[in-house]
Structures are given as structure tokens and as C-alpha cells.
């Protein structure tokens, strides 16, 4: 665990609460998927929680976030109510998109959480536009844009890196490198080797790699990146090394990964690591940790009940919101 000076106990407790909330939310969602309450695609963020929580903790409310389809973690870290997210996963009228978006398309405009994007790389140009608006309006907002290493091989990635750097736009491009694009290892998809963060050097963009299993390290690295970006230095590229403990989606039997590799990454579990460190160092007491854990369970229980009891969308909503 990276020791960040001056980090407050309150902040550490909040990191733990959010990461646990995401983890348990995902486990509940998997359970509800198995029970047929959730259908379609369900991509779980389990194992990667430190990134969303560490990075988003740095933002101001007016800053923007866009992300990929594995988006529950980012939504929760941004403060979206687990109730409306779970209801959206259940396809209910009370969901964040009134049951029209589903797991891959979470939005909360009131929190400037502008979406999960389900076409790989499609959020990168959107991030460029949000940052361009920030520049045009001189309102000081920054954009935090998450994507996986699979997006790096899309043409839009290169178009977006080039334009963002050319125009010195206020974006932190945050690569969540979990090594696998669906079932294919990065060594079989990316010519530039494992040091993906170095790939943007040619775009004249600063970059840095951080341990994606360490919430404190992610927090600190993002803080530095956002400070520079907000002060007008142009975009910054952060790469976090991470691992998804589950399959690509619920449909994935994970027969392409080595069990020893999985076990090695599981030893780096970001939630266990933080808890162990916080207890050993006396940052948090056992009692306090238990209080957090109980709170998370209650919140998720309420979320599942809310989703389950909510009505389906009325059929006349089918044609609503096609146009503004």
C-alpha cells in the first residue's frame, strides 16, 4: 500500500466503503443475473475497484466522467445511488435510464457522469468534446475518461490522443489495463509491448503508470494528473495495471487464463489490501470497519428490494425520448 502523506482517516474509510460497495454490488448483480432478474450483458468490475474509487475521489462535482461498458464501479464511485443502478440492471422504470440503457449504459447528468459507452473506444472522442466545451466556456472543468487496453488498438484512440494533445485539452485519459480484451491477451493484440502508457509519447503527451490494485497510489497519481490538466498543461495519460477477477461478462467461462496468474492477482486484492493496511497501521479500528461493512450490506439489500419491487417501464415510454 502506497503511504500517502496527509491522507485523512475519513478518506481512507470512504475508499474502503466505496470499494466494498462496488464489490458487493457486483456480487449481488451476479447473483441476480443467475436468478434471471438481470438479463443481457453484465460485465463485472470485481478486482478493479481501486481505480474508479481512487481516481474519481479527486474530481470536483462539475468535472465530467465518461467510461466504458464495465461501468458500475465508476457510477458508484461518482455517487450514483446503487438503488437506481440496480433498478436499471433489472430493467425497471425507476432505473437511471428508465430501463432503456441497461448495465452498459449508465448515466447521471446531475453528477456529470455522462455515460458508459458500449462500443470499444467510442467514449474517447466524446471526452475530447466535453473538454473542448470546457475550454470554449472557460469553466475550468476537467474530463476523466476511462477505457481498457482493448480500446488502444482502435483508430478512435489515436484520433483522440492526437486531437486532445494538439489542442491541449483538459482530459485525464485513464487506461485500465486488465491484460485481456475479452479473452485475448494484450501480447497478442498490441505491437507496442506491455508499456502501453509509453505509446502516447509520440502524441507529445505526458504519461505515467500506477499500481491499479492500490487505491492510495491511484488517488495520488490522479491528483497530480488532474492538477496539471486543470492548470492548462494539456491532457495526461495514466495507465493502471489491474486484473478482472471474473470473466469478461457473465457468459465467459474464462478458459483462456492461467489459474496461477489468477491466484497471483487475487493476492493483490485491492479491498483486502487496504483493510489489512488500515487495521495494521491503526488508521481504522476493527469496529469502524465492521460498521462500514454492515452499512454496505444494508444499502445493497435496500437496492435489490427497490429494484425488485419497482414497476416495469410503461409500454408507452417506448417512443419517449427518441427526440428532445
Amino acid at each position: 500500500m502506497k503511504v500517502v502523506e496527509k491522507i485523512e482517516k475519513k478518506q481512507v474509510a470512504e475508499f474502503y466503503r466505496q470499494m466494498l460497495l462496488i464489490r458487493r454490488f457486483e456480487e449481488k448483480a451476479a447473483e441476480m443475473y443467475m436468478r434471471g432478474k438481470i438479463r443481457g450483458f453484465l460485465h463485472l468490475y470485481i478486482g478493479e475497484e481501486a481505480i474508479a474509487v481512487g481516481a474519481i475521489s479527486v474530481l470536483k462535482p462539475e468535472d465530467y466522467i465518461v467510461t466504458h461498458y464495465r461501468d458500475h464501479g465508476h457510477a458508484i464511485a461518482r455517487g450514483m445511488d446503487p438503488k437506481v443502478i440496480m433498478a436499471e440492471l433489472f430493467g425497471k422504470a425507476t432505473g437511471s435510464s428508465k430501463g432503456k440503457g441497461g448495465s452498459m449504459h449508465l448515466f447521471d447528468a446531475s453528477k456529470n457522469f455522462l455515460g458508459g459507452y458500449a462500443i470499444v473506444g467510442a467514449q474517447l472522442p466524446i471526452a475530447v468534446g466535453l473538454a473542448l466545451a470546457s475550454r470554449q466556456l472557460q469553466n475550468g472543468r476537467v474530463v476523466l475518461c476511462f477505457f481498457g487496453e482493448g480500446a488502444v488498438n482502435e483508430g478512435e484512440f489515436h484520433e483522440s490522443m492526437n486531437l486532445a494533445s494538439l489542442w491541449k485539452l483538459p482530459i485525464v485519459f485513464f487506461l485500465e489495463n486488465n491484460l485481456y480484451g475479452m479473452g485475448t491477451h494484450i501480447d497478442n493484440t498490441h505491437a507496442g509491448g506491455r508499456d502501453v502508457y509509453k505509446a502516447v509519447g509520440d502524441y507529445n503527451m505526458a504519461s505515467h503508470r500506477v499500481d491499479g490494485m492500490d487505491v492510495m497510489a491511484v488517488h495520488e497519481a490522479t491528483l497530480e494528473a488532474v492538477d496539471g490538466v486543470r492548470s492548462g498543461e494539456g491532457p495526461f495519460f495514466l495507465e493502471a495495471l489491474t486484473y478482472r477477477f471474473r470473466g469478461h461478462s457473465m457468459a465467459d467461462p474464462i478458459n483462456y487464463r492461467d489459474k496461477a496468474e489468477e491466484a497471483e492477482w487475487r493476492r493483490k486484492d485491492p479491498i483486502d489490501s487496504l483493510k489489512r493496511w488500515a487495521l495494521e497501521e491503526g488508521v481504522l479500528t476493527k469496529n469502524y470497519v465492521e460498521t462500514i461493512e454492515e452499512g454496505v450490506e444494508k444499502e445493497l439489500q435496500a437496492a435489490v428490494e427497490f429494484a425488485d419491487q419497482s414497476p416495469d417501464p410503461p409500454l408507452d415510454s417506448l417512443m419517449q425520448d427518441v427526440y428532445a
Binding site: 465530467y64 465518461v66 455522462l114 467510442a122 474517447l124 472522442p125 466524446i126 471526452a127 475530447v128 468534446g129 466535453l130 473538454a131 473542448l132 466545451a133 470546457s134 470554449q136 466556456l137 483508430g155 478512435e156 484520433e159 483522440s160 492526437n162 486531437l163 494538439l166
Partner: peptide, 19 residues
Amino acid sequence: PISESVVVGAGIGAAMAGL
């Protein structure tokens, strides 16, 4: 630049942000 995808995507992003 000659980058149609990011040009349109940036237009979408800027439009969502109120422009």
C-alpha cells in the same frame, strides 16, 4: 485533423456540455 470520428464525437461531447 483528418479524423472524422473524433471530430464528430467531439461535436457530440461539446453539444452535451451545452454548446
